[in-house]
Design a protein around this nucleic acid. Structure first.
Length: 803
RNA sequence: GCCCGAGUGAUGGAAUAGGUAGACAUAACAGACUUAAAAUCUGUCGGAGGCAACUCCGUGCCGGUUCGAUUCCGGCCUCGGGCACCA
C-alpha cells in the first residue's frame, strides 16, 4: 500500500503543519463569540496512542474548525491526566520516578496528538500532576472538608490485592478491580470519603436539562438508583430496641413474616439471645472474611436465627429476626422486613429455613393461592386487614399513610449511589492536604501553604496493610499543627486519579491563574463547556464526579452554573479484528504507518467514514483505501480546473448547493459518515460535469471551504493552488441557495394497491388534479378494473390507486 | 435475573413526522488503457423466473394496524452494553 507512488499528501501535510503552527487557524475569529469544545484529555501512558484513540479528537477538531469558519472563536485545549497507577507501577519495577516517565510520555503524546492535525491550543496546556495545578485540586478538597462533605470513616472496603489500593464503588466492576480485573477483597480501613450522596437528587434531576445521549443519562440514572418507599420501625419483642427497615413495598406489610439484619448491622449481636449468640458471632466472622464476589456467587442463601423476635405493627404477630448476608449493610438501613410470598430472595430464604410464607396479593381471579415461587407483580390485596380488596398499587400509598399517621414509619426515598471513597494508599497522586493534630484533631493545611507537594521517595512500594508509601517519609509526615503548633502528622493517603480530572475543564479557561482555580472573568467567558466528547467508559465514573464537583463549586460561588457540559457526545470505539485495539496485544494500527502512507487528512476522513460515530466500528484496510481514492479525485478535480474559467451552469449550481446543504445538515446532526458520503457523491458529480462544462471558480472554492474542517491540509493547499493568498480559515462557511435546488421536473411514483408500478415526470409546481390525471393515464393499462376505489395522493411524491 | 440498545446485499453502512429499500464505499466479476503490472477509467453487482417487456419474493422470526411498514404496535429469537441479592 505504498500510496506515495500515487499521490504524496505527506508533503502537503508537512508544509501546512508548519504554516498552521506559525499562524494558528483560530486567530481569524479572535474577538468573535467564544465557544469551548473539549475532547477528554488523555492519561499519558507509556504505550502511546493508536488510531483507535483518534476518533474523539478528530470529531472535536472538525466541529471546532467548522465553528471557526462560521465566525466563532473556539477554544480547543489539551492537557494531561497525569497521575495514575501505571507510571507508579513502572517506577516500582525500574526505580524511575513517575514524574520522569510521565514527562517522557507527554512528549510522545503531544507529538501524536499534533499528528492528528487538530488545531489544539497548547498555550493552555495543563498537567494534573503539576503542583501549580494540584494546588487547586487540594484547595477544592479543603473547601469540601470545611463544608463537611469530606469525612473520615473506618469501614469495610473493596480492596484490590493486586493494585494494593482501595476501590471506590464506581471502580469495583462486578466485584473486580476496574483497572486490572483482579477480584476485590474486603479490608477494614480508615478512609476519606466524599459525601456525593448529598448531591444524589440534584445529580439525578439535572440530567433532564442536558443535551446528552439517552444511553449515558440512563446509565447515570441507574447508577444513582432512586427508589421510592417507606421506612418502617419494628419493636424488638421484650426489649426497648427497634429495627428500622426500608421497603419499596409497604403494601406487603401484612405478608412480612420475619426480619433479616445484615451481618454488619449493629443490632445483629445485640438482639441475639444467649443460646444463639455464638452462632451469630461465628456467622458474622465468616461472612466478613468473604469477598464481595464470593458473597454474590453463593448459590444458596445462608443465615442464622438470633433467637429474638420483632413485632409486625399491623398484624401484631411475632417475626423471628435472622442475620443473613444477602442483606447489604450499605443500602437502606441494612435491615429488611422479609415478605417471602412477594420477594424472590425472601422466598428462597424462607423455603430453605422453613419460615412462614403468607400470600397477601392475589395475581388475578384465577389465583389459586398455591405459591411455587414469589409473586412480585401487582394484584389485589388479600389476608391484609384494612387494605383487603385494594389494588396493590394503591395499597402502597394506603399503608404508607397509615404508618405515618400511627408514627410507625414514614415515606422516604433511597439511592443506590454510595459515598465516594476518596483516599488511596499509593504514591503517585495528590497528597490529601490535611494534618492530624493530637490536640485540634484534623486540621486542613492553610491556603498559604498549598500546594502540599508530593515528596521525593526512594521506594514506591505499596504495602499490604493499606499504609501509603508516603507514611515512611518521617520528615515529610511530621509537621507542626497549623493551628496550635503541636507535633502533628500529615495525612499520608493520596487522592484517587479521578480528582484532577473532576475540575480540569475549568482550568483550561484560566490555566496560569495563581490566585484562584479560575477567575470570574474566565469563568463567565468560557465555561460551561459547549461540547464535550469522549468514550462511554467514563459514563458513570468521570462524568458523575465532574458533575458533583461542579455542583459543589456552584454552591461555594466559584462558578455560576451547575452542569459542566451542556452537550456530551459519546463516541464508539474503533476495533481491529473484532476486538479493541491494544498495543500490548499487538492488535493495533500505528498512526505513524498510516500517516507515512496516506498523510493526515485521509485517516481523518476515514475515521469519520468508518461508521456512525456513536457506534463501535471496525477498522478496514480497504475502507481507508476508498477514502484515499476520494481524496485523489478531489485533488484531481481542483488541480485540473484551478486555472480554467468556466460558467456556473445550472447543473453546477445545483451540485454546489446540494453539497452545501448535505454537508451542513449532516454535520449538524453529527452524521459524519454520511457527510463523507456527501463529499464523495458531490466530487463524483463535479468530475462528471467537468468533462462537459468545466467547473466554475466559485464551485471549486465552495468545495474547498466545505472540506477544510475535515481535510485541513489538503484543503489549504487546494486553496492556494486556486490562486488565493488570503488564509483558508478566514473564509466564511457557504450558505445554501435553495433556489438553485429547484428543479423543472419532479418524479411521481405510481402505486397500485401499495406496490410501485410506474414512475412519471411532471413539471414542478403541478397541482394535485394534474398529477393524478397524469398518473391515471400512465397507469391505466395496468389497472385491474376500470375504476379505482380510492386514490391516495402524497404531494409531489406519489399516487396510490387502490382497487 | 432486571434494564437499555441493535439486527438491512458478500462486507461497512444509507434511507424512518409511514411513501421508489440498498445512497456512499469495499470486495468480486467483466471491459478500456498498458509490452506487463500497479494506478486510473467504464460497466455488472439482493434472490428466483423470463429472449424480452416484465413478474414474484426480500430489511432477524411470527402476527397486527394501514391504501402502503426497514420505520408504528404485540409476541418470540440472536447479538452487544449497563446493573447485579439495592429489599
Amino acid at each position: 500500500m505504498d500510496a506515495n507512488t500515487r499521490f504524496n499528501f505527506s508533503a502537503i501535510d508537512k508544509k501546512w503543519m508548519k504554516r498552521f503552527a506559525d499562524e494558528p487557524v483560530n486567530v481569524y475569529s479572535d474577538g468573535k463569540p467564544s465557544l469551548y469544545y473539549l475532547a477528554m484529555f488523555p492519561y499519558p501512558s507509556g504505550t502511546g496512542l493508536h488510531v483507535g484513540h483518534w476518533r474523539p479528537y478528530v470529531i472535536n477538531d472538525i466541529m471546532c474548525r467548522h465553528q471557526m469558519l462560521k465566525g466563532n472563536y473556539v477554544m480547543q485545549p489539551m492537557g494531561w491526566d497525569a497521575f495514575g497507577l501505571p507510571a507508579e507501577n513502572y517506577a516500582i519495577q525500574t526505580g524511575v520516578h513517575p514524574a520522569k516517565t510521565t514527562a517522557e510520555s507527554i512528549v510522545t503524546f503531544k507529538k501524536q496528538l499534533d499528528d492528528i492535525g487538530a488545531a489544539l491550543d497548547w498555550s493552555r496546556e495543563i498537567n494534573t500532576s503539576d503542583p501549580a495545578y494540584y494546588k487547586w485540586t487540594q484547595w477544592i478538597f479543603i473547601q469540601m472538608f470545611k463544608k463537611g462533605l469530606a469525612y473520615e470513616k473506618d469501614m469495610l472496603l473493596n480492596w484490590c490485592p493486586s493494585c494494593k489500593v482501595v476501590l471506590a464503588n464506581e471502580e469495583s466492576v462486578g466485584g473486580c478491580c476496574e483497572r486490572c480485573g483482579e477480584t476485590a477483597t474486603k479490608k477494614h480501613l480508615r478512609q476519606w470519603m466524599l459525601r456525593i450522596t448529598a448531591y444524589a437528587e440534584r445529580l439525578l434531576n439535572d440530567l433532564d436539562g442536558l443535551d446528552w445521549s439517552y444511553k449515558v443519562k440512563k446509565m447515570q440514572t441507574d447508577w444513582i438508583g432512586k427508589s421510592y418507599g417507606a421506612e418502617i420501625t419494628f419493636d424488638v419483642k421484650g426489649t426497648d430496641k427497634e429495627i428500622t427497615v426500608f421497603t419499596t413495598r409497604p403494601d406487603t406489610l401484612f405478608g412480612a413474616t420475619f426480619m433479616v439484619l445484615s451481618p454488619e448491622h449493629e443490632l445483629a449481636l445485640q438482639v441475639s439471645d444467649p443460646i444463639h449468640y455464638e452462632a451469630v458471632k461465628q456467622y458474622i466472622n465468616e461472612t466478613s472474611a468473604k469477598s464481595n464476589i464470593d458473597r454474590m456467587a453463593a448459590k444458596d442463601k445462608t443465615g442464622v436465627f438470633t433467637g429474638a423476635y420483632a413485632v409486625n405493627p399491623v398484624t401484631g404477630e411475632d417475626m423471628p429476626i435472622w442475620v443473613a448476608d444477602y442483606v447489604l449493610i450499605d443500602y437502606g438501613t441494612g435491615a429488611i422486613m422479609a415478605v417471602p410470598a412477594h420477594d424472590e430472595r425472601d422466598f428462597e430464604f424462607a423455603s430453605k429455613y422453613g419460615l412462614v410464607i403468607r400470600r397477601v396479593i392475589a395475581r388475578d381471579e384465577d389465583d389459586t393461592g398455591i405459591m411455587e415461587a414469589a409473586y412480585a407483580g401487582e394484584g389485589v390485596m388479600v389476608n391484609s386487614g384494612f387494605i383487603n380488596g385494594q389494588k396493590s398499587k394503591d395499597a402502597i400509598e394506603s399503608v404508607a399513610n397509615h404508618l405515618e399517621k400511627e408514627g410507625l414509619g414514614k415515606k422516604t426515598v433511597n439511592y443506590k449511589l454510595r459515598d465516594w471513597v476518596f483516599s488511596r494508599q499509593r504514591y503517585w497522586g495528590e497528597p490529601i492536604p490535611l494534618i492530624h493534630c493530637p490536640i485540634c484533631g484534623v486540621v486542613p493545611v492553610p491556603d498559604a501553604q498549598l500546594p502540599v507537594e508530593l515528596p521525593y521517595v526512594e521506594s514506591y512500594k505499596p504495602s499490604d496493610t493499606g499504609e501509603s508509601p508516603l507514611s515512611r517519609i518521617e520528615e515529610w509526615v511530621n509537621t507542626p499543627c497549623p493551628q496550635c503548633g503541636a507535633a502533628s502528622k500529615r495525612e499520608t493517603n493520596t487522592m484517587p486519579n479521578w480528582a484532577g480530572s473532576s475540575w480540569y475543564y475549568l482550568r483550561f479557561a484560566d490555566p496560569h491563574n495563581s490566585e484562584a482555580p479560575i477567575s470570574p472573568e474566565a469563568m463567565k467567558k468560557w465555561v460551561p463547556v459547549d461540547l464535550y466528547i469522549g468514550g462511554v467508559e467514563h459514563a458513570v465514573l468521570h462524568l458523575l464526579y465532574v458533575r458533583f464537583y461542579t455542583k459543589f463549586l456552584y454552591d461555594i460561588g466559584v462558578v455560576d452554573f451547575e452542569e459542566p457540559f451542556k452537550r456530551f457526545f459519546c463516541n464508539g470505539m474503533i476495533n481491529l479484528n473484532g476486538s479493541k485495539m491494544s498495543k500490548s496485544k499487538g492488535n493495533y494500527i500505528s498512526p505513524d504507518d498510516i500517516i507515512a502512507c496516506y498523510g493526515r487528512d485521509v485517516p481523518r476522513l476515514y475515521i469519520l467514514f468508518v461508521g456512525p460515530p456513536e457506534m463501535d466500528s471496525e477498522w478496514d484496510e480497504n475502507g481507508i483505501e476508498g477514502v484515499f481514492r476520494f481524496m485523489g479525485k478531489a485533488w484531481k478535480l481542483v488541480s485540473e480546473n484551478a486555472g480554467k474559467t468556466a460558467k456556473p451552469t445550472k447543473e453546477l449550481l445545483f451540485a454546489r448547493n446540494k453539497l452545501i446543504k448535505d454537508v451542513t445538515e449532516r454535520l449538524a446532526a453529527f452524521s459524519f459518515n454520511t457527510v463523507v458520503s456527501a463529499f464523495m457523491e458531490g466530487v463524483n458529480k463535479l468530475l462528471d460535469l467537468s468533462k462537459s462544462s468545466g467547473v466554475d471558480k466559485e464551485t471549486l472554492e465552495t468545495l474547498i471551504i466545505l472540506l477544510a474542517p475535515f481535510a485541513p491540509f489538503t484543503s489549504a493547499e487546494m486553496w492556494e493552488i486556486t490562486g488565493h493568498s488570503t488564509p483558508l480559515f478566514a473564509q466564511k462557511w457557504p450558505v445554501c441557495d435553495e433556489s438553485a435546488l429547484r428543479v423543472d421536473e419532479i418524479t411521481i411514483v405510481i402505486q397500485i394497491n401499495g406496490k410501485v408500478r410506474e414512475n412519471i415526470s411532471v413539471p414542478a409546481g403541478s397541482d394535485k388534479e394534474e398529477i393524478i390525471k397524469a398518473a391515471r393515464t400512465a397507469a391505466k393499462p395496468k389497472f385491474p378494473q376500470e375504476q379505482p376505489l380510492k386514490e391516495i395522493y402524497v404531494p409531489n411524491k406519489l399516487v396510490n390507486f387502490v382497487f
